[in-house]
């Protein structure tokens, strides 16, 4: 009875010695626990060389267009770490934004194209396509002269010398449509058209449903049925996030006009490797560019123009 008045003030304040020890101890424990978690996670990550953390981070990363610059840098760090760990190469992943006042256009002279397929090889070397899966962005069709029925085309042609008499050759790659059906078909918006006209894919956001492949009327998209494997010395280390960075298995990829080169003012690899000079690339907004001369002065056509896809890839003849 006599103890009560003595203890009441302490209980009112809620800070008896006992409770102080109890709460203080719990706080210390929790602080230690939460402080230890990152350290432990760091240890775990270092133990498996960030394999788990990178996988988890890639799984939970956002859509490329919704990432903050810091998140983009984290994603790039994950990609470079993974490339170093799995392939043993040091790659650089650029995120060059589209250039102001530039819309890319491509023109191809089918009078000049001889079916040499150097463009295909240069594309494979530049864009880090899987060597075993043998994905190729460019498909060179061989057609009879006077025949524009693509059902009659042969892209497995392998004569000793090209051009063969009576044939003409027509390479098809992604035509970077201005009204791309693949973008409309994608259920998760993993592919979109950039302001400079290039249709790109966020490989981390792609779910591999291949609706876009079904929607594309030009057979321009390719699916990674297996993890792309490239010999270490053949990997192109100059990559772009939306371009030729390492792709996982089960995603769709396609020609992106060598975005890692063209956004730096360079020419696409297929154009560089064409020995006939059949390819013309440039900014269709620049009235003095090569491509504008071709579009204005040559007989040009676009493939399957009646579909309304508005490709930014023109075929022309001399």
């Amino acid at each position: 009875m006599s103890m009560r008045p003595e203890t009441q003030p302490a209980e009112r304040s809620g800070w008896s010695r006992r409770s102080l020890l109890k709460r203080g101890g719990m706080l210390t424990f929790l602080a230690g626990l939460f402080g230890a978690v990152p350290a432990v996670a760091q240890k775990v990550a270092e133990a498996d060389d960030h394999a788990l953390s990178d996988a988890v981070g890639a799984l939970f990363q956002k859509h490329y267009q919704k990432m903050t610059p810091e998140e983009v840098q984290e994603a790039i760090a994950r990609i470079t770490r993974t490339a170093k760990r799995e392939q043993g190469v040091d790659i650089t992943v650029a995120t060059d934004p589209p250039l102001q006042g530039v819309i890319f256009g491509y023109a191809l002279n089918i009078s000049k194209c001889k079916g040499v397929r150097r463009c295909v090889e240069a594309c494979v070397a530049e864009n880090n396509q899987g060597r075993e899966s043998q994905i190729q962005y460019i498909r060179v069709l061989e057609l009879e002269k006077g025949d524009m029925n693509l059902n009659d085309a042969d892209h497995y042609f392998a004569p000793e010398l090209v051009p063969q008499p009576g044939k003409f050759y027509m390479p098809i790659q992604c035509l970077q449509c201005d009204n791309p059906p693949c973008v409309i078909a994608c259920p998760v918006q993993a592919t979109w058209k950039e302001p400079d006209g290039i249709v790109v894919v966020d490989y981390n956001w792609c779910i591999g449903c291949r609706y876009c492949m079904a929607a594309c009327p030009y057979w321009a998209r390719r699916f990674n049925f297996s993890q792309p494997k490239i010999p270490k010395e053949q990997v192109n280390t100059d990559t772009h996030y939306l371009g030729n960075r390492p792709r996982p298995r089960g995603v769709v990829e396609k020609c992106h006009f060598c975005i890692q080169r063209t956004r730096k003012g360079r020419l696409p690899a297929c154009l560089e490797a064409c020995p006939t000079g059949a390819r013309v690339f440039g900014n269709i907004l620049d009235p003095n560019s090569d491509i504008r001369y071709v579009l204005e002065n040559k007989t040009v056509f676009r493939l399957k123009e009646e579909l309304g896809t508005e490709p930014k890839f023109w075929y022309y003849t001399d």
């Binding site: 001889k114 295909v120 043998q134 497995y156 042609f157 010398l161 090209v162």
Partner: peptide, 13 residues
């Protein structure tokens, strides 16, 4: 006149 070229290998089936 441009002489004929040896083509690069065809895509694998």
């Amino acid at each position: 006149a441009i002489k004929p070229y040896t083509p690069s290998p065809p895509p694998r089936v």
